[in-house]
Amino acid sequence: MPYRNLTNVEETILKRSFNNWGIFEIFGTLRILILTPALEALISDKKPNISKLDTIPNEIRRHNSRGSGSSSIMAEKCNNNDAGRFHTLTKGYPNTIEFSESEKNIKRTEVFVHSNIKYDDMLFKKLKPVIIGLKIGTIKNKKFFPGLNFAEFVVKHNRNMDYPHVIINTKAENLIVFGRDIMGSSILSFFKDIKENQQLIILNPNKEVIGLGKSRYSGSLITQPNMITIDTIQDIGTYYLKNENRHSKSIDKSIDHVL
């Protein structure tokens, strides 16, 4: 599972998101890394047709991962001694034609934040870490989907609360951490410009993040009683229960050492 720096496209996506949530000023203070999960595409034994990439000097391939988007990622992989890991999609095409995996076909990338800026990419490549820092969200189809930790950054740095949010009562808080949705009558206050189908942060009466949701209605319609007005997308309760099991399956278990 390789970690890498942001590409130009990803940087733009994230900057836009940070700006939309009102915390653009902290973007430059965070060291953001991308984790691309391993793909399940067919792996070809033949070297792919990447003549253009072959001409890129090794130094630039290694250190300029921001420079040219998908080609820079492929350049790193070409330079990797483990050439068999290079992915090509050959299914459904004649054997003479080979395609390189472009970044747009990578379904999902995970965004991590790390507070230390001393260690460079070469060290991370050598160490092959499983996790670096704190996961704040995912990028999928050129859109950033924030996670609970990103919401924490928003709440901490956007003191004016100038972001889509609702504050719910204690009873609803205790239900949400079991994955329940939000009834309109549970909402104590809400962001004035809330729109239909908008992602928002769910806060408890202490203005602490307890989840992320999506509004079914706009404006004051969100407080209609006796009906669900916000769908809970993520909450601090089920996040740590559901995903823990899912995550443990994706980790390479071939190097277990039982005492």
């Binding site: 790390h114 996790i131 670096i132």
Partner: peptide
């Protein structure tokens, strides 16, 4: 590796940013 997920989620829950696993 069976124990990595518990480590990951405890680090996340505690908002730890300076750890490399």
């Amino acid at each position: 590796s069976n124990r990595l997920s518990s480590l990951f989620f405890n680090l996340s829950r505690c908002f730890v940013q300076n750890t490399i696993v």
